[in-house]
Design a protein around this nucleic acid. Structure first.
Lengths: 159, 159
DNA sequence: AGGAATTGTCTCAGAACTGAACAATTTAAT
DNA sequence: ATTAAATTGTTCAGTTCTGAGACAATTCCT
């Protein structure tokens, strides 16, 4: 008889953190799959949808702002804006105060497009999240926001 | 004067779900970045690390089991096992009862490797999660497990 | 003003997968 | 036993992005 694998005795605090990480990434992966299937109906990736949604809710933004908001790489935002521009959903506009920069904005077609698909997508998300009660959803959101903020504020607190 | 964008009045339940989705995916993306940087020190992707960890904790498994556990595509698991095999960290073993299938197992080198790097990685995760108290971590894990389970049990409840 | 450092974006090579089609079995049905 | 259906893993073409470096414009120092 033999235990499956002690796998090094882990202290309780670390075990707790690991368990949270496992369920967090699994839940996200599962929801992402559902969300991806939904936006794929409109020939969009989640990242593309994210760009459209950011512009829809916040209005025109500098490319860098969109990048930070959607958490893609520098090359990624260029790629995404290129693709969306090719479909005439967004456009680049020169920034008067800083000629290196440019705004990214929805075109009329892009506005109409995201307006028409966003509500359906929101309903898919609502259905997915309905496994939790409203109160539970708020609790989860509160905790996850804390987690996310702590990471962006302390990218490398090493001294 | 003009509001930024009403973006279609969303009912409270949907808004709650969307907010949760945003903080969930952001938190995950941030943590993933940290975790990816950590395993990259050992020339591993997160997916590769996930395979090694699964085998380390559960012992040899059929390729399909590893695939389901790590949530990669069918082609993905072949790709990952190929890469890890090339580094002599895992190996394929024929399955006696089913000649289509094969087990994936850690080699001695792979076992030593994951044993040596897992604790460090666990500590990185523990530090990341330390933004939440132990009780909060358990609450979050509980809620996220519910969410994840509800999605795997009802992949397409459409009738 | 002049030079260095910083910032904002783009380019590009290529990494890390995905998913559809396929071959090899195994299981179920007739 | 045969045929059909389902399961397991692989191949391969193609997609989506990443990250290092290049470049230009701006800001900061003296």
């Amino acid at each position: 008889m033999q235990t499956v694998t002690p796998a090094s005795a882990i202290d309780p605090a670390t075990g707790r953190a690991l368990k949270l990480w496992v369920v967090l990434s699994r839940a996200t992966a599962s929801i992402e799959r559902r969300a991806r299937e939904d936006v794929a109906r409109h020939d969009l990736t989640l990242a593309e949808f994210g760009v459209l949604e950011a512009l829809y809710h916040k209005g025109p933004m500098l490319a860098g702002e969109v990048q930070r908001r959607t958490l893609v790489s520098s090359g990624g935002i260029t790629y995404l804006v290129d693709r969306l521009t090719a479909r005439d959903l967004v456009e680049r506009r020169p920034c008067p105060e800083d000629r290196r920069a440019n705004y990214v904005a929805l075109t009329p077609k892009g506005t109409a497009f995201i307006r028409s698909i966003f509500p359906e997508h929101a309903m898919v998300i609502a259905e997915v999240m309905s496994a939790l009660s409203p109160g539970e959803q708020e609790t989860a959101a509160h905790l996850l926001r804390q987690l996310g903020l702590s990471l962006r504020q302390a990218p490398d607190a090493s001294d």
